[in-house]
Design a protein around this nucleic acid. Structure first.
Length: 568
RNA sequence: CGGGGCGUGGCGCAGCCUGGUCAGCGCGCUUGGUUCGGGACCAAGAGGUCGGGGGUUCAAAUCCCCCCGCCCCGACCA
């Protein structure tokens, strides 16, 4: 490609509405443009990257035995009504009518359509298993689109669905996809972690998120360097501490202290000179309409997704001030577990606590030397605190590492949720009719592009991993008006193109500094700079990532690049 | 939806509080010239319903009301 003819509109300044590096850089470097909130044009450079990401996905999915299909984006309402998700998916789904007033939606995902296809065509266990995938547009009317491509309303997703006769086979395919996803992200040159994830309504142990490690990630994860345990903090478990032996012997008498207008844990801690670890934090949650008191150690936070999971609740939220007073009869900020009218559940972190501080249940007073078991009953100890870096690994006890990450893939063992609702049945070897066991597996293609930038950039611009770079090499003649320089650059360009490299030549009549800035911004991994060295038969090779330069003979450019970029 | 902020040539912004001499700056764009290894310089130009509508006023980018769009923080997720 010739830069002078390419549609690569770069900018010196970041757009005012972009916040995170990937959003700013993808716009500045000319990969995307915004059309409206959550909707983007993907420009030629962006399309090249997307194409490479898709190619890797296709190769690996095919290798894993999955087959590509192309399903409609426009879905009839009947299928969604059948699965029960027409209303459940609700506002997130773009809905519309055709000229006959029939209801349709724009696909947010495709379980219904694929299940419909499979139920109509598959009858026997002999035709199973089956794994079908597609790469296409998805539409989700996000409550708040943000961060450019990271959370868009229209995006490109690879979604795969598998169908099995037995649970074991579904599990086998789950791990097959786990390995496949790992290969995919590894090939893309991304630093990622596969973490255990919350399974939502589906339940079970089978869900992993693939997170690209980046500080700006929306998700948090922890992992153990010793045993390999890795989980999203929405799911990460705490080991259950044992109850200290003879703890009763340590008990001191309860003491009521005046704490005027001291409410927050930090305030209480400072006022009484007691560390937050020895103060009880008591929160009131509303779980599907029912009030529940949840106690955690003062320095801990409740992870609501875990709470939801423990109570198998559909909706979990903090109670409002008014609800707290109504349900407990106690003032907010001084809640006491003693004499509370609603059940008290305590996080594991409360188990080892002895002689701790808690609210007194009346305004401006706290209690010291409170002990669970003696002063109040804990209905049940549950694991709901958010796990943090440094906490013990639930599997081996070693300290966990905490990172932020961007969820680029999610694999799920679905079970029979859709096959039962939609009647996707098969006949097994005993002539028995059974629902198929399903799995589903997604990768956010456009999000991968953003995540790659988020993880790989510096103050000068993007640094693409070579596998997904729009171009592998850029040839930069520093002055196209100098015949010798121009001719050498053209020759190298032709040679590289001939050898199968994705190569761009900056043949614009511009000053060298201008071209260098653009090359760095766009993030092409290797730059061949053709300048004054030509009279000695030399050009310069600069690596974008390290900034390292080396002079090489014009005749050796091809072989040097071949050793750097493996062509297949 | 709740909370916060923003809308002024293509882009980034100033002006608004204290209405009038306020259509302004930088980048980009066009033409000519000089330059040519890290986003050059000089000169001349093109380009704006000041988000939209209504109101107040002799006079509105500026004050008031309504609407629209966009961004950030929360519930959601590839």
């Amino acid at each position: 490609m010739r830069f002078s003819r390419a549609f690569i509109p770069t900018k010196k300044e970041s757009p005012a509405d972009a916040e995170i590096p990937s959003h700013k850089l993808l716009i500045r470097a000319g990969f995307i443009r915004k059309v409206a909130s959550g909707l983007y044009d993907i420009l030629p450079l962006g399309a090249l990257v997307i194409r490479k990401i898709e190619r890797i996905i296709r190769e690996e999915m095919d290798r894993a035995g999955a087959q590509e299909v192309i399903l409609p984006i426009m879905h009839p309402a009947e299928l969604w009504l059948e699965s029960g998700r027409w209303d459940v998916y609700g506002k997130e789904m773009i809905k519309f009518k055709d000229r006959h007033e029939r209801d349709y939606s724009l696909a947010p995902t495709a379980e219904e359509v694929i299940t419909d296809l499979v139920r109509k065509e598959i009858r026997s266990y002999k035709d199973l298993p089956l794994n079908l995938y597609q790469i296409g547009r998805k539409f989700r009317d996000e409550i708040r689109p943000r961060f450019g491509l990271m959370r868009a309303r229209e995006f490109i997703m690879k979604d795969a669905y598998s169908f099995h006769a037995t649970d074991e086979d579904a599990e086998r395919e789950y791990w097959n996809m786990y390995e496949t996803y790992s290969r995919i992200f590894r090939r893309m040159g991304l630093e990622f972690k596969a973490v255990e994830a919350d399974t939502g309504e589906i339940g079970g142990k089978f869900s992993h998120e693939f997170m690209v490690i980046a500080d700006t990630g929306e998700g948090k994860l922890v992992y153990c360097e010793k045993c390999g345990y890795a989980a999203s903090t929405e799911k990460a478990e705490q080991p259950k501490p044992s109850v200290p032996e003879n703890r009763e012997e340590l008990f001191k008498p309860v003491e009521k202290v005046h704490t005027p207008n001291v409410k927050r844990i930090e305030e209480v801690s400072e006022f009484l000179g007691i560390p937050p670890e020895n103060i009880l934090k008591l929160l009131v949650y509303i779980v599907d309409g029912q009030p529940v008191a949840v106690a955690v150690r003062g320095d801990r936070e409740v992870e609501e997704t875990k709470l939801k999971q423990v109570f198998r609740g559909k909706e979990v939220r903090l109670a409002t001030d008014e609800e707290i007073e109504r349900f407990t009869g106690q003032p907010k900020g001084f809640l006491s577990p003693i004499g509370l009218k609603i059940p008290v559940y305590a996080d594991y972190s409360v188990i080892p606590m002895v002689n701790f501080v808690a609210g007194a249940g009346e305004k401006d007073y706290h209690l010291k030397n409170v002990n669970w078991g003696r002063d109040f009953e804990v209905k049940e100890f549950i694991d709901v605190a958010e796990v943090r870096g440094g906490d013990p690994c639930p599997k081996c006890g070693a300290p966990l590492v905490e990172k932020r990450g961007i969820e680029v893939g999610h694999i799920f063992k679905l079970g029979t949720k859709y096959s039962e609702a939609m009647g996707a049945l098969f006949v097994d070897e005993n002539g028995q009719e059974k629902p198929m066991i399903m799995g589903c597996y997604g990768i956010g293609v456009t999000r991968v592009m953003a995540a790659a930038v988020e993880q790989n950039h510096d103050e000068n611009g993007i640094i693409w991993p070579v596998e997904i770079a729009p171009f592998e090499v850029i040839v930069i003649p520093v002055n196209v008006k100098n015949d010798e320089i121009r001719e050498v650059a053209e020759k190298i360009y032709e040679e590289l193109k001939e050898a199968g490299f994705d190569v761009l030549i900056d043949d614009r009549n511009a000053r060298p500094g201008f071209k260098f800035k653009d090359a760095d911004l766009i993030g092409i991994p290797y730059q061949i700079i053709v300048g004054k060295g030509v009279k000695d038969g030399l050009v310069e090779l600069k690596e974008r990532k390290t900034g390292e330069r080396q002079e090489i003979a014009i005749g050796r450019v091809l072989e040097v690049l071949k050793s750097l970029v493996s062509k297949n």
